[in-house]
C-alpha cells in the first residue's frame, strides 16, 4: 500500500504537467496576489462606504448612482481625459511617423539620433521631467523668455490659464513619441524594396509612393500603436499630478488623479474604487470600438 502510494507520487512528480505548473508557480502566485485579489477587493469596495480607517459597509449601487447623478466633477474629468487622449494620441502618432520616416534612411549618425529621439519616452513620464515642464511654462520660464527674444514681451501664465494649461500636458505627451517611433521604424524596414522599385518603374512619385505603398502597409502598426497609446492616454497620471494638480478650475483634472484624490485625500475609498471600475469599462468600450473599425481601414493581406 505504502509502496503503491510512493509509486503514484513519483509518477505524479514525473508528469510533464506537474513541471509546467511548478515552473509557472512564481507567476501564478504573483498574479493571484497582486492582480486578482486586489481587483476582487476593489470590486467589493466599490459597493461599499469605505473610508480606509473604518471597516467597509456594504451600500449596494450607491457609489455608482452618485457618480452619474450627483457629481459634476466626475463628468468634467471624463471630458478632460477624453480631450487629452483624443488630441494627444493622434498628434503623437503623426509626429512619431514623421520622425520615423526621417530617420529611416541609414547614415552614420542615425543610430545616435534614434537613441536621442527615444530618450523622452524613457524619462518623459518621470517626476523630474514633470517638474522641469512646470518650470519651462512658468511666467518667468523658458517659453516666455524665448518669446521675449523674438520681441513678444509677455509674462503669460501658461499653467494658470484655463485654455492653455491642458496644452502643456498634451505637448509633454506628444514629446514622448519614442516607442511608437521605434515600432514604426521596424515595420518600415519590413516593407519590401521591390514594391517601391515597381512603383518607380511605373512612374509614381515620392508622394504617391507614400500614400499607395507605405501608409497602407503601415496600417496594422498604426492600429496597434493607436490602441496601446489610447489606453495609456486614459491612464495618464504623473503629468497631471505633478504639474497642474488639476488646476485651474479642474480644466486639467485627469480621471486617474480625481480617483486618487477621492480615495486618499477625501478618504472616499469606496467611491474611488467605483470610479476605477467605470474607467475599466470605458477603456474596454473604446478598445472594442477601435477593433470594430479595424476592418474598414487596416490592411491585413500578406505583403
Amino acid at each position: 500500500m505504502k509502496e503503491k502510494k510512493r509509486e503514484s507520487f513519483r509518477h505524479f512528480m514525473n508528469r510533464e504537467s506537474t513541471a509546467g505548473f511548478v515552473f509557472s508557480l512564481p507567476f501564478s502566485i504573483g498574479f493571484l496576489m497582486f492582480m486578482v485579489v486586489p481587483m476582487g477587493l476593489s470590486l467589493y469596495y466599490s459597493f461599499c462606504d469605505y473610508n480606509i480607517l473604518a471597516p467597509p459597509v456594504f451600500v449596494g449601487m450607491k457609489n455608482y448612482i452618485k457618480m452619474f447623478t450627483d457629481d459634476p466633477v466626475f463628468l468634467k474629468t471624463i471630458g478632460v481625459t477624453f480631450y487629452f487622449a483624443f488630441v494627444s494620441v493622434p498628434m503623437r502618432l503623426v509626429f512619431a511617423l514623421i520622425v520615423a520616416l526621417i530617420l529611416f534612411k541609414t547614415t552614420k549618425a542615425t543610430a545616435f539620433y534614434r537613441a536621442a529621439y527615444y530618450l523622452p519616452s524613457i524619462i518623459g513620464g518621470s517626476v523630474a521631467v514633470a517638474i522641469l515642464w512646470k518650470r519651462i511654462f512658468a511666467t518667468d520660464g523658458v517659453v516666455n523668455q524665448l518669446l521675449r527674444i523674438i520681441g513678444i514681451k509677455t509674462s503669460f501664465p501658461w499653467l494658470g490659464n484655463v485654455n492653455t494649461a491642458i496644452w502643456t500636458l498634451i505637448i509633454l505627451a506628444v514629446w514622448q513619441f519614442g516607442s511608437s517611433m521605434l515600432i514604426f521604424l521596424s515595420s518600415l524596414k519590413q516593407i519590401p524594396v521591390t514594391l517601391y522599385e515597381a512603383a518607380r518603374v511605373d512612374g509614381a512619385n515620392r508622394f504617391s509612393q507614400f500614400f499607395k505603398i507605405t501608409l497602407p502597409l503601415l496600417t496594422p502598426t498604426i492600429f496597434f500603436n493607436l490602441v496601446m497609446q489610447t489606453i495609456n492616454g486614459f491612464l495618464a497620471f504623473t503629468q497631471c499630478f505633478i504639474i497642474t494638480q488639476g488646476k485651474p478650475l479642474n480644466s486639467t483634472l485627469f480621471y486617474t488623479v480625481y480617483m486618487y484624490k477621492q480615495s486618499f485625500e477625501f478618504y472616499n475609498t469606496g467611491y474611488g474604487a467605483a470610479l476605477a471600475w467605470i474607467m475599466l469599462g470605458i477603456i474596454g468600450l473604446i478598445t472594442l470600438i477601435l477593433f470594430a473599425t479595424k476592418k474598414f481601414w487596416v490592411y491585413t493581406e500578406g505583403v
Partner: peptide, 27 residues
Amino acid sequence: IDPGVYAEISIGSVEQDPLVNGSSPET
C-alpha cells in the same frame, strides 16, 4: 495677486510663497 501665479508653485511650501519667491512685483 493673479491666481495664475499659484498654478506654478506647490501650495503650502514656504520657499515658494509669493512673499519670498517671484521675479517681479506683479507676481
